[in-house]
């Protein structure tokens, strides 16, 4: 469902930049961030880590940044994660105006158990999120996709996804979203091709040439 009110996020202008300064900010429970877009100057910011986390949990992408008393509407554009840990490292905000179309990725919410799955079919999810184009106020939290009617061999493509009013799916309509495939059973993978061919070591690039040259000599 689209939001009726934009959540406010308190942000402070960040004076010190660089990795050491960012580390100090993270240790205090804050998160380094940046605001850019609309051909205006980018501003280095500090936001509260927990607040951003809560917003993302609720699927919020559009926020009103309160930068030292000045309000700026922005879209959460990118997040850097600590891949070896769990936390976030940095957030990118992009300035938006309420009357311009934006392109965002929205999660797909699959409803129901496919009829084919109860008969042994395998549900194959090809897309779990989809790119949409809409006005900032119309960004949906999730897009619901009903899959209960799918039999074995049936599939849903991007063109079949019904977005809420004012939202347009910005993907190739032929892209597969979800399909129910026939059961494969436990299949033992065939022995390695190389083994079949009796190859036990790889070909060394340039080795043949050298051998031929030696033979010629």
């Amino acid at each position: 469902m689209a939001k009726t009110q934009i959540p406010t996020l308190k942000a402070d202008v960040r004076g010190e930049k660089g990795s050491s300064a960012s580390r100090r900010i993270r240790n205090k429970g804050s998160l380094p961030a940046v605001l850019y877009g609309h051909k205006e100057e980018s501003i280095a910011l500090t936001v509260d880590h927990r607040e951003v986390e809560t917003m993302l949990k609720h699927g919020t992408l559009l926020v009103e940044l309160d930068i030292d008393g000045k309000a700026e509407q922005a879209l959460i554009k990118a997040i850097q994660h600590d891949h070896a840990g769990d936390g976030m490292l940095h957030v990118d905000f992009e300035r938006v105006s309420m009357d311009e179309l934006v392109t965002v990725t929205v999660a797909l919410d699959f409803h129901g158990t496919p009829a084919g799955a109860t008969h042994g079919g395998i549900v194959e999810y090809q897309l779990t999120e989809i790119t949409v184009e809409c006005l900032p106020m119309d960004i949906p939290e999730v897009i619901r996709v009903d899959i209960a009617h799918l039999e074995i061999g049936d599939s849903i493509h991007a063109r079949d996804v019904v977005p809420p009013e004012g939202v347009k799916v910005a993907r190739d309509p032929e892209d597969m979203v979800v399909a129910v495939a026939a059961p494969r059973g436990v299949e033992e993978e065939a022995e390695e091709e190389a083994e079949k061919a009796g190859i036990t070591e790889p070909e060394v690039i340039g080795a043949k040439k050298e051998q031929e040259e030696k033979a010629e000599e």
Binding site: P202, I205, G206
Partner: peptide, 12 residues
């Protein structure tokens, strides 16, 4: 032999 490259630049 299981997985291994098809071609390599150096044997070792």
């Amino acid at each position: 032999m299981g997985l291994m490259p098809k071609r390599v630049k150096h044997r070792k």
